[in-house]
């Protein structure tokens, strides 16, 4: 049987109106809105609750935070500088004694009391060049009116 032969029957059947739905349309729309609203926002309340809990926790921690304590330490004796090594003492004491005795001799006997200069070893030890200006030979003094 072809479809064209069924067209009048199809038209006649389609002309029949199904019985209208027996539910309340307004109530259905209300329930739909209720469900969509209930479904919509579950993320935002969860985030809000989490942030509120965190803020409360921080507030409680700030409220009960322990006061900063001042720790008073007992005075400890200052550490004395380390005594010089015996070797250094051995080097400095004779030098100081020699200097004083040399000074006394110069004061009493004049500049001629100075001992002769050690041989110039600047070529072998460059560190002596540093001390050279301080230990000038007597011949370098240009004394006005003195011997040329």
């Amino acid at each position: 049987m072809s479809e064209n032969e069924m067209k009048p029957l199809e038209s006649a059947l389609a002309a029949l109106q199904p019985r209208p739905a027996a539910f309340d349309r307004d109530r259905l729309m209300f329930l739909a809105g209720q469900r969509s609203a209930a479904r919509r926002g579950w993320k935002l309340p969860v985030i809000s609750a989490a942030l509120a809990s965190a803020a409360t926790l921080v507030g409680v921690l700030l409220l009960y935070r322990p006061e900063p304590q001042v720790v008073v330490l007992p005075d400890t004796p200052r550490e004395l500088p380390a005594p010089p090594s015996p070797l250094a003492q051995a080097d400095t004491k004779p030098a100081a004694a020699n200097y004083i005795s040399l000074r006394n001799r110069i004061v009493t006997a004049g500049i001629d009391a100075l001992p002769p200069l050690p041989p110039d070893s600047s070529s072998s030890s460059p560190s002596n060049a540093i001390f050279r200006p301080h230990v000038l030979p007597r011949d370098d003094f240009d004394i006005p009116g003195g011997s040329p």
Partner: peptide
């Protein structure tokens, strides 16, 4: 859209 669907298809769906 929901209202339109209800108006147009509710009766046929009930059937």
């Amino acid at each position: 859209l929901l209202g339109r669907l209800v108006d147009e298809h509710a009766a046929a769906l009930v059937l």
